[in-house]
Simulated scan of single mutants.
Amino acid sequence: MALFVVAFTVSACGLPRPGPNKREIFAGSVQQKGNAYIVSVNDRVVQATADAPNAGFDAAFLNAGRIGADTIRRGDKLLLTVYENVEEGLFGTAGAPSTLTELQVDQTGHIFIPYAGRIRAAGNTPEALRQIITRKLDAQTPDPQFIVTRAAGDGSTVSIVGAGGQGVYPIEASTSTLSTMIAAAGGVTTDPENTRVTVIRGSHKGTVWLEDLFASNKQDIALRPGDRILIQEDTRRFTALGATGSQSLVEFPQPNMTAIEAIAYLGGLNSNLADPTGIFIFRDETPDYANRVLGRNDFTTPKRFAYVLDLTEPTGVFLGRDFEIRDGDTIYVTEAPYVQWTKTLSVLTSSAGAANSLAAATGG
Rank of each mutant, 00 (worst) to 15 (best):
F4I: 15
V5P: 02
V6K: 03
F8A: 15
F8D: 13
V10N: 11
C13M: 13
G14Y: 00
L15W: 07
K22E: 14
R23P: 02
F26P: 04
G28C: 04
G34F: 00
Y37P: 05
Y37H: 07
S40F: 06
S40M: 10
S40N: 15
V41P: 00
N42T: 09
V46N: 06
T49N: 04
T49C: 08
A60N: 09
L62A: 05
N63A: 11
A69R: 03
A69L: 04
T71Q: 09
R73E: 11
R74S: 09
G75Y: 00
K77P: 04
L79F: 10
L80W: 03
V82T: 13
P97Y: 00
T99D: 07
E102T: 12
V105G: 01
Q107L: 12
H110Y: 15
I111R: 04
Y115F: 06
I119A: 10
A121G: 02
E127C: 05
I133W: 00
Q140V: 10
Q140W: 06
P142R: 14
D143F: 12
P144G: 08
P144T: 04
V148M: 05
T149L: 13
G153T: 05
G155I: 03
S156I: 08
I160E: 03
G164N: 11
Q166R: 08
Q166D: 15
Q166T: 10
V168G: 13
Y169D: 08
Y169R: 12
E172F: 06
E172I: 14
A173R: 15
S174D: 15
T175E: 03
S176L: 11
T180E: 12
A185I: 07
G186E: 13
G186R: 05
G186P: 07
N194Q: 12
T198S: 12
S203E: 15
T207V: 08
V208A: 11
V208D: 02
V208K: 04
W209E: 12
L210S: 07
E211R: 09
L213H: 07
K218I: 14
Q219R: 10
L223I: 01
D227S: 01
I231T: 01
I231P: 00
I231Q: 00
D234S: 04
D234Q: 03
D234M: 01
T235I: 09
R236Y: 01
L241W: 04
A243D: 02
G245H: 02
P255F: 04
I260W: 03
E261S: 06
G267L: 06
L273R: 02
A274G: 05
P276W: 00
I279N: 03
I281P: 00
F282Y: 12
P287R: 01
P287E: 08
D288C: 02
R292F: 10
L294R: 06
F299Y: 14
V308Y: 00
G316R: 03
L319R: 06
E324L: 12
V333H: 00
Y338T: 12
W341E: 11
K343L: 13
S346V: 09
G353Y: 14
A360L: 12
